[in-house]
């Protein structure tokens, strides 16, 4: 039972990171119908920038661990948001009117470019996050000892997701984003600046991805230039699992995938961990072809 609860909290923490990354995929997809394969590299970049800022500014020493990491997260999110907007401007915007698969190739190219840029700047070796940023304490709850970092990640992710949900559902700008996702042409006709909406999506999505990258660094302690790919793929799986383009779907998919993976790795086989995640995806899609919360629409390409 203790192992089960440990794995459940572990799965929820990892799953909430997946969910944050998945939101980036799903928001871009919702508005542009484009799979942003370079998103995973933005996550990696977030992890690396976080490490650079952490060591060079010594934020944790000056401001105390919690405030320092919070400020760090804000800075990383801001920087990655700018990179995300630049990515859209350079690699995707010229391809708005072209066949969808061409934009996918452009996204794959941008992904290769960013990954190799990171490798050239930081090197191909694994880098370690300092061990002493967050206090190594555990909190005793429901009969088990949960590491603080796990709880923090879960809480912060849920806060961010809640904030995003509120932003999308309740504010005027959020309504504009939803309108552009449903029908770009009609959104333009009622006076919504679709280009601005796209820019906004490319600021918010990458910002969440950058935060997720930072969390991965803090949680696992090790980062590598190729790490984004496997997390990105999982997050994309999560986005599809929940129904791509659907924001609550990405959150649900991420948490579900994290838990399934943690349980599968513990109770079935660690070596088959990644395969289990995809197997679950395929089984769910066979039953629900548009994901758990996806709309059942007939596709007209």
């Amino acid at each position: 039972m203790e192992q089960f609860l440990q794995q459940l909290t572990n799965g929820l923490a990892v799953g909430s990171i997946y969910a944050l990354i998945a939101l980036g995929y799903t928001m871009v997809y919702g508005v542009l119908k484009l799979i942003n394969f370079a998103h995973s590299e933005l996550v990696t970049l977030g992890a690396y920038l976080g490490l650079t800022l952490l060591t060079s500014l010594a934020l944790a020493d000056r401001l105390g661990p919690l405030l320092g990491v919070l400020l760090l997260a804000v800075m990383v999110m801001g920087l990655i948001a700018v990179v995300g907007a630049m990515l859209d401007r350079v690699a995707y915007r010229p391809l708005r009117q072209s066949p969808r698969l061409s934009a996918v190739v452009s996204a794959l190219g941008a992904s290769i470019f960013l990954q190799n840029t990171i490798m050239l700047i930081y090197g191909a070796r694994y880098l370690n996050y300092p061990h002493d940023i967050l206090p190594k304490m555990t909190i005793h709850m429901v009969g088990i000892d949960v590491p603080l970092v796990r709880i923090l990640i879960l809480c912060v992710s849920i806060l961010m997701m809640g904030g995003l949900f509120f932003f999308i559902q309740k504010t005027k700008v959020g309504t504009a984003i939803r309108a552009a996702a449903i029908d770009q042409g009609a959104a333009k006709l009622v006076g919504i600046d679709v280009n601005l909406v796209v820019l906004l999506v490319f600021l918010v999505g990458p910002a969440l991805g950058g935060a997720a990258g930072l969390m991965l660094g803090l949680y696992y302690g090790q980062i590598n230039f190729a790490m984004g790919w496997s997390y990105g793929l999982k997050a994309f799986t999560a986005a599809i699992l929940g129904g791509i383009g659907n924001i609550p779907g990405a959150m649900l998919g991420g948490l579900l995938l994290g838990v399934v993976e943690a349980m599968g790795a513990t109770y079935i086989s660690f070596a088959w961990k990644d395969a289990i995640a995809f197997l679950v995806l395929i089984l769910i899609l066979i039953v629900r072809p548009t994901g758990l919360l996806g709309e059942r629409v007939a596709e007209k390409v």
Binding site: A91, P94, L95, S106, L108, G109, A110, I112, F113
Partner: peptide
């Protein structure tokens, strides 16, 4: 080492 970097950029460029 910059080989794949150029390759990625070329993919974006050619598609544009």
């Amino acid at each position: 080492n910059a080989r794949m970097l150029v390759f990625g950029a070329a993919m974006v460029g050619m598609m544009i």
